[in-house]
Every structure is written in C-alpha cells, then in structure tokens.
Computed example of a mutant assay.
Amino acid sequence: MEMFSPKTGPPIYFAAMSEYRFCFLLSCLRFDDKDTRAQRQTTNKFAAIRVIWDIFIDNCGKMYVPSETVTVDEQLLAFHGNCPFRMYIPSKPAKYGIKLFLICDSKSKYMLRAIPYLGKEGTQPQARGGINVGHKITKDFKEPYHNRNRNVTTDNWFSSAPLVTDLLHNCGMTLVGTVKANKKEIPQEMKETRTRIVGSSAFLFVNDMTLVSYCKDTS
C-alpha cells in the first residue's frame, strides 16, 4: 500500500497506526444503511458512499485555502470491482476504474473538490443553457473562488472560448489551457501548418483572449 510504503509513504501514517491496523479498520468500515441502499440506488448510483463522500469533499474545500492557481482535470481511479459506472479507458495506465473530475491546488496538488462520473444520466452537474458539461463542471468547481483573482488551468476536454469569456467577465478569473483544433471558434488560419516553419508559433488576439498555435515536427 502506497500510504505505508517506506520509500514514498509520509511518516505521519506510520506514527498514527500500523499498516495491519489500518487494513483491519478499513475492512470493518460501513458507510450507509444496507437495508435502504437498493431503494436509494434507483435515484443515486453513488448511494453506497454518497453521504460520507459529500462530508469528505465538503471538508476538503473548507480546510484549505488554495494558491492563486488551481487545476481542473479528470482522473481514472483504478478499480476492478462490480460497479455500474466503472469505465474502460485503454489510454490510461489502469485501463479500468472510476473516473473523477477534480479541482486541485496547482502548487501543493491538494484536492479541493471532486465529482464522480456516474454515466451520462447520473453525473451532476448536467450541462444547461447551451453550455457543455466541461464548461459547467469548471465553472461550478470554481464558484467558491469567483472574483478572487485566481487562474485555472484545464486540458482540451474543458477548454473553450465561451468558458474563457464566462470566467473572465462573470467570475473574475482567468484561464490557461489547451484546446482542440476542431473547436468551431478556432479560425482556419490557425489550423494551417503546412507552410509554417517547424518550431514557430502563430498568435491570435481577440478582445481579452490570446490563442497560440505551435508548429511541431510530426516526422
């Protein structure tokens, strides 16, 4: 177990208890009423752990003040058990697991909040008002830090021009992230690389946004 590894495990875990004691307590833990679980699972796929999960996530945000930069991303948490929302992503090291959307402090890597992906019908928040799920998740994640001069870093699943504009003008925040070339807001001139020099960059400035297209060697 990584927590109790003599090479990577923080000493605080050894000071609290032994690995054997930790595993024993872990095997005895129960997080909800098994008699009512089936009924609750009809409306909430995460019912077996929802109550303790919400308490834990709420405390993560309350007990820590992040730096000026935070990151929104996703992670596949390795899991091979029986789970209706377990995912298979061949590009990930674990391949099978539970996908989580996370917001973390970019400097300390501290997790501030997380949302489990429970499938298209079971994951909250749902996209509304013409914005996609990545936009909605990023904005909701950042709500406690709106208008506090923070920057968020995202990858191309979350990044979009509407998100940048929304965060800047409605939330008092900036965003840095990669963006897919097939986004409709990217002009064709920024996608064309055949006539450009390898290692060169093209810049596009629109109001408060800057787009950079880097030409890399694909040979």
Results as ranks from 00 to 15, higher is better:
Met111Phe: 08
Arg40Asn: 02
Arg50Tyr: 01
Thr174Ser: 08
Phe56Asp: 05
His169Ile: 08
Glu189Thr: 12
Ser67Glu: 06
Thr195Ser: 15
Lys216Pro: 07
Asp155Arg: 05
Gly97Ile: 09
Lys142Ala: 14
Thr195Pro: 05
Glu121Ile: 08
Ser67Tyr: 13
Ser159Cys: 15
Ile49Glu: 05
Thr165Ile: 09
Ser27Asp: 14
Ala114Asn: 10
Arg113Met: 06
Thr69Pro: 02
Ala202Asp: 07
Ala47Thr: 08
Leu112Val: 01
Trp157Leu: 00
Arg50His: 07
Glu143Cys: 11
His80Glu: 09
Leu112Thr: 04
Ser160Leu: 10
Asp35Ala: 07
Asn149Met: 07
Tyr20Arg: 12
Gly61His: 02
Tyr110Ala: 12
Gly122Trp: 00
Val65His: 12
Ser219Ile: 11
Val212Met: 15
Leu102Glu: 11
Asp32Tyr: 00
Lys183Glu: 08
Thr71Ile: 04
Ile103Thr: 03
Tyr214Pro: 01
Thr174Asp: 05
Phe79Gly: 03
Asn170Gln: 07
Gly61Ile: 02
Lys139Met: 11
Tyr88Trp: 15
Pro125Met: 10
Leu163Glu: 11
Ala15Thr: 03
Pro90Thr: 01
Ala47Asp: 02
Phe22Glu: 02
Asp166Cys: 12
Lys107Phe: 07
Met1Cys: 12
Met3Tyr: 13
Glu19Arg: 13
Ile12Glu: 04
Arg30Asn: 06
Gly134Glu: 02
Gly61Lys: 00
Tyr20His: 10
Phe85Cys: 02
Leu112Lys: 10
Phe56Trp: 12
Tyr96Gly: 04
Glu68Met: 13
Arg86Thr: 06
Asn82His: 14
Phe14Ser: 14
Phe203Ile: 13
Glu192Trp: 13
Ala48Glu: 08
Lys191Asp: 09
His135Ser: 05
Asn182Pro: 11
Asn59Glu: 14
Leu204Asp: 06
Thr178Lys: 12
Leu175Phe: 01
Val176Ser: 11
Val198Asp: 12
Ser91Ala: 10
Ser108Met: 14
Phe31Gln: 11
Val72Asn: 01
Ser91Asp: 04
Ser106Leu: 08
